[in-house]
């Protein structure tokens, strides 16, 4: 029978460490202890179930109870006012609100999980509201918008996207292309402005971003100044706008010309020239930046 040297408690025979403080039991050399019977049988170790907690269970039951009461109340009131034919939308909305609340309680407490579930539920709600007659129109554009929100606002925080950055960017770009094509198809019934306007604008945006990325990433040091990011973004956006304006004019009138975006293009060129000059000339760089930051 050993004692814990830290806690002073007597330990049952055969104990290797003190259950209270974890101190190892030190027996005199040559002395061995026989193990006493364990406190509980060892052959049936049930696993922890990590199941639903009391508070969560209560909340879910409350939500489901409220769902049942609201569905019955709304259903009966529609029935007695002879408006049951219009009952799908309110009943469906209550059901989806319930699913949304339950998913809030059940989803893992991570932004990606919650945002994904809520995006999916809102998308289903919109599809359901639009497709009561099994014909879908405006909801396709709205659901596409939710997909784009998910691609840019949720997906980059997922583990997969963090692991495969290039793949994630490619997927986001592809989803944008498809979304634009979808809008064109839903609104016009065919791909009209998508190829002559949207594709060149997107290509200009991508090409500009890629060039700036290559330029900045090949510089000495890892740190990209915020001023460079802001100015570079302005150049890319302004020049893409010019491409959009030019391709739109060509699509509408048949002639390539710049209308409202000419001033933007000039601004983009001036900013670009300034950036190139600052990048090439040490004197200019010293003039615009602090003395010891970009040597």
């Amino acid at each position: 029978m050993a004692y814990c040297v830290r806690c002073g408690v007597k330990l049952s025979s055969g104990t290797k460490t003190c259950p209270l403080c974890g101190t190892e039991v030190q027996l005199p050399p040559g002395m061995e202890e026989t193990s006493s019977d364990p406190l509980f049988a060892k052959e049936l170790p049930p696993e922890g179930t990590h199941g639903i907690t009391k508070a969560r269970k209560g909340l879910i039951e409350l939500i489901i109870a409220l769902f049942a009461v609201s569905e019955i109340t709304v259903g009966l009131s529609l029935f007695f006012s002879d408006a049951l034919a219009y009952g799908f939308i309110p009943l469906f909305c209550i059901a989806m609100a319930t699913v949304s609340l339950v998913s809030i309680v059940l989803a893992k407490p991570r932004y990606v999980h919650h945002a994904s579930w809520q995006s999916l539920i809102v998308a289903l709600l919109l599809l359901g509201l639009d497709g009561a007659d099994f014909v879908w129109s405006w909801s396709l554009i709205a659901v596409g918008g939710i997909v784009i929100f998910w691609m840019y606002g949720v997906f980059p925080w997922s583990r997969w996207a963090k692991k495969h950055v290039k793949g994630g960017i490619a997927l986001s770009v592809l989803s944008t292309v498809f979304y634009l094509a979808l809008i064109n198809l839903v609104v016009s019934g065919a791909l009209t402005w998508f190829l002559p306007v949207a594709v060149p604008t997107l290509l200009a945006l991508l090409l500009g971003t890629l060039l700036f990325f290559l330029w900045f990433s090949n510089r000495k040091g890892n740190r990209i100044p915020i001023a460079d990011i802001v100015l570079g973004s302005m150049v890319v956006l302004f020049s893409s706008s010019a491409v959009f304006d030019g391709s739109l004019a060509r699509y509408q009138t048949g002639a390539i010309s710049l209308r409202w975006a000419s001033s933007l293009l000039v601004t983009a060129l001036v900013i670009l020239l300034f950036m190139v000059a600052v990048s090439l000339s040490l004197r200019l760089r010293r003039y615009f930046t602090s003395h010891n930051r970009h040597d």
Binding site: V9, K10, L11, S12, G14, T15, T17, P19, S36
Partner: peptide
């Protein structure tokens, strides 16, 4: 548990400990 039992020991009461925690045997 440790604070409880060590208080008893300091108060002159002998305490014998047994457990079903897996890492102690």
């Amino acid at each position: 548990e440790r604070l409880f039992c060590t208080f008893l020991v300091e108060d002159g009461i002998q305490v014998e400990i047994a457990t079903n925690r897996e890492d102690t045997r």
